[in-house]
Amino acid sequence: MKIKYQIFVSSTFEDLVEERELVIKAILEMGHIPVGMEMFSAGDEEQWKLIQRQIDDCDYYVVICAHRYGSQDGDLSYTEKEYDYAFSKGIPTLGFVIGDKAEWPVNKSDTDTQKKTSLDLFKNKIKKKLISYWQNKEDLYGKVSIALMKQFTTNPGVGWIKSNELAGPEVLIELTRLSKENSNFREEIKQLKFKIEAEETSKYDKLIASLRNHEINLSFYYKNGSDWEDSEKLSLYRIFKLLAPECMSELSSVDTAMYLSYFKTQKERELRATFPVPRNTIKQIFADFVVLNLVKPSLKKHSVKDENEYWTLTEEGIMVYKEIRRQIIDNPKSETETNSDGNDKKEITNEKTSKK
């Protein structure tokens, strides 16, 4: 009887698409059954239960590791979470870690210090079991094939056998049940994906609506002026859309005043150098962004003499800005906003004001 083994292939996804395809191809060419995490969407409790059940049914577990730690559930990446679960179930694990001298694109590597540290710890965990180092996708393809063949011989799993090679109708009944169950799982996964995407879109739409509906009164102090001028109500939406690209790194309160000067109406007049926009207005803007969980204080280190406040986008702030940009790209003509006097005004699209 020819036994087919089921093999779970785990890795970070976007940076290892081609490598995963070759590993899955190698498993199929050997006549066995690959199971990939791309069948699931990480981050949902019900989907994690489905992934656990798939790992439970596998005979071997393969983990591929390059230079990304991947998306996380708390302190652990989903890849490491899968690895720990397979190990806890006593499933033979085979690790394939990229070699230190292997060429690898910079844009497929983590730059965040915490993620790099977590990745190093994860690699050390993998190295405690069976491991191979690979230099490129072709090298990985060969080493996975060889390592699995050795496992099949020295550590054979339970595997699967074709129904016509077994006696009794109960086997056919069980296979039919499993096939139907698998089909139901796929439909559940599909519906869960739709549900999550719809919930996320709805959440971001609500935040964008809050930004559009809330207004800030903005005034300017011109050079050689004697008082605040050009008082105008602006939506938080317009302000967030202007400041968000700068906040992706970090933005100081001083620079915020400079960027907000884009909204001044007397373009020919020069603003005063120090806080041409009221400090309390800037504080109110960022306080509102904090309430909506769009920004947070920056953790980058600055000189002890630097008394500026620095802000950066939260993960939610990044997603809201992405949704704003997506809507603009999909329908740029819709980007108008009604002023307090009832007239339509063209929205600003991330134009920067040059520093004086």
Results as ranks from 00 to 15, higher is better:
K2T: 13
Y5V: 14
S10T: 05
E19D: 08
R20Y: 09
I24R: 10
I27V: 13
G31C: 07
I33T: 13
F40H: 09
Q52R: 09
R53M: 09
I64R: 13
A66Q: 01
A66G: 06
A66F: 01
H67C: 03
L76G: 00
S77M: 02
Y78T: 01
E80I: 03
E82M: 01
E82I: 02
F87V: 10
G90E: 01
G90F: 01
P92C: 04
L94Y: 11
L94C: 12
I98V: 05
A102P: 08
K108M: 02
K125Y: 00
L140S: 06
S145R: 11
S145F: 15
M149N: 06
Q151F: 07
F152P: 01
N155V: 15
G157A: 09
N164E: 14
A167P: 07
L172V: 05
L172W: 11
L178G: 12
Q191V: 04
K195W: 12
E200C: 05
Y204A: 04
L207M: 14
L207Q: 07
A209T: 08
A209L: 11
S210C: 10
S210M: 14
S219M: 00
Y222D: 00
E232G: 11
K233H: 07
L251K: 14
T256F: 09
Y259G: 00
E268D: 09
E268T: 09
R272Y: 02
F275M: 13
R279W: 06
I285F: 07
F286A: 04
F289W: 06
F289T: 10
Y310V: 06
T314C: 06
M319D: 12
R326P: 06
Q327V: 01
D330M: 03
D341C: 13
D341I: 14
N343Q: 06
K346L: 13
I348E: 10
T349E: 15
K352D: 07
T353H: 05
